[in-house]
Design a protein around this nucleic acid. Structure first.
Length: 171
DNA sequence: ACCCCGATCGTA
DNA sequence: ACGATCGGGGTT
């Protein structure tokens, strides 16, 4: 396996979000390809959880790149993110959609749905993807064409085209 | 202690 | 278009 190193995650978040398309997430013997991401960058980004400063929940985003950030949303779904950029600067990439061999994409085409299907919960928050044995990201050399749009489900920062969608998969 | 809202999803 | 469902964050 060619696990993505710190030098991949410790870069500008928009670059990481774009290059994560086509990368593989390994989680407890499951393997999926990333097909949609969104960038959340710093306290100045009104849609970023860190926009109201460092709290118990957002502390992970202020830490070193390459850690998982998993949070509960709407009381019933979990969302998976990967922490990016240098330590002290809060930023992360939300994984919005993935593809898995022999599995209907409808089960994996949403941030809450993919976590539910893969079994990702709050237990998997703050895990070091650079050293964890059963949770990491790797490069299989797949490069996917993509398009950018504004982020989904947020009202602030609609001018930012920070959503990256691999084509040939879904909306 | 209380209130409000949310990086969603399934159904109508 | 709307309701489910509950932890986190801000305020009292």
């Amino acid at each position: 396996m060619q696990r993505l190193p710190l030098s991949f995650f410790n870069r500008p978040t928009l670059l990481v979000a774009r290059e994560l398309l086509g990368k593989e997430i390994f989680f407890k013997d499951q393997k999926v390809v990333i097909t949609e991401t969104e960038a959340y960058i710093g306290e100045e980004d009104p849609a970023c959880h860190a926009s109201r400063g460092k709290t118990k929940r957002t502390a992970v985003m202020y830490g070193r790149a390459g850690f998982s950030y998993v949070y509960l949303i709407y009381g019933m779904y979990y969302c998976l993110n990967f922490v990016t950029q240098e330590e002290g600067f809060p930023a992360a990439v939300l994984i919005r959609s993935v593809h898995m061999t022999d599995i209907d994409d409808k089960k994996l085409n949403g941030p809450g749905k993919l976590c539910r299907f893969l079994g990702i919960t709050k237990e998997h928050n703050n895990i070091d993807l650079l050293t964890s044995k059963d949770f990491y990201v790797s490069d299989k050399g797949l490069s996917l064409p993509f398009k950018t749009t504004s982020r989904i489900g947020i009202s602030a920062g609609q001018d930012r085209q920070w959503r990256f969608v691999a084509q040939f998969f879904q909306k």
